[in-house]
Design a protein around this nucleic acid. Structure first.
Length: 273
DNA sequence: CCTTATGCCTGAATGC
DNA sequence: TGCATTCAGGCATAAG
């Protein structure tokens, strides 16, 4: 499921191929993926425009077209944006095909949760979905003080806090569990029970695990692929996610699996306090 | 304002 | 073997 490192990898791999190219035509095979617009209206607006740049905010991608419109894209769990240098078959779960002046861009999504929507470029960051987002964890705006302030105002467990995109943008179930393990903090801990030292550890762990995820070009646990259709490699570095009932790689104790904040959560009751 | 629950979806894994 | 059930989970929206 594309989280910050995966979406950033898609952004980078996609930009290499499509920056500066023109969209000649758009074909829509499942119109619900387009949010707020009729499929044909979406296609008519996008057709004939040039892709100028691609940005990321949290788990969202912004594909900027000219200076007027941007496509705001979210992959949710199984969404893919894949570039093909030549014409390519419309596969089973392909919902939108952008015909470019060099190659094609396919939006595919098995689960059909992912969405594309058009936003005016001039007001792109004022879109309600983006306005709600908390700070970018890898940017300078995010400091241990900012994290500590947000934690002190909330009354939920740390797992729910880190999944909340309005607190910090970009972490999902995988990187939350990995960051908490690396910080040595139990996911059930209340936000207001963390000491200053623990907040510092959590801050560093979050940034470290997100950077490592980007360097590994993402986690391909199941469906994730970058814009070249390639897998990432961070799944081999996972210490807890997907390892419930396995021995902890640090201390050997069997990892616990529990539903928290509605998500499967894996942790070590020995290494995490 | 806050927190928790539900719907959206398909395919893999599991249960009987 | 085959069919039914459970699980995976980000976000918008509804409900409490």
């Amino acid at each position: 499921m594309p989280e910050l490192p995966e979406v950033e990898t898609i952004r980078r791999t996609l930009e290499q191929h499509v920056q500066g190219v023109w969209i000649k035509d758009v074909q829509i095979y499942y119109s619900s993926v387009v949010k707020g617009w009729e499929g044909q209206e979406f296609a008519d607006v996008v057709k004939g425009r040039q892709i100028t740049s691609i940005e990321r905010r949290g788990k969202y991608l912004l594909i900027n077209l000219d200076q007027s419109w941007s496509i705001l894209a979210h992959m949710r769990m199984t969404g893919r944006l894949i570039y093909y240098p030549a014409q390519y078959q419309v596969a089973k779960h392909t919902h939108v095909v952008f015909k470019l002046d060099s190659g094609e861009l396919h939006f595919a999504d098995t689960r059909k949760f992912g969405r594309l929507q058009l936003v005016p470029t001039e007001h792109k960051l004022e879109h309600p979905s983006l306005l709600k987002l908390g700070p970018e964890p890898l940017e300078a705006e995010f400091t241990p003080e900012v994290l500590g302030q947000s934690l002190s105002r909330k009354k939920v467990n740390i797992k729910a806090f880190l999944l909340d995109q309005t607190m910090v943008a970009g972490l999902g179930n995988i990187y939350v569990d990995e960051a908490l393990f690396r910080a040595g903090i139990l996911p059930e801990r209340g936000t207001q029970t963390l000491t200053e030292v623990e907040v510092g550890k959590l801050y560093s762990s979050m940034r470290q695990v997100l950077w490592a995820g980007i360097e590994a070009q993402g986690t391909s646990f199941r469906d994730y692929r970058d814009a070249n259709g390639e897998k990432g490699s961070f799944q081999v570095a996972l210490q807890v996610y997907g390892r419930g009932q396995e021995p902890c790689q640090i201390c050997g104790k069997i990892l616990e699996r529990k539903k928290l904040a509605g998500r499967t959560t894996v942790f070590c009751t020995n290494c995490q306090k």
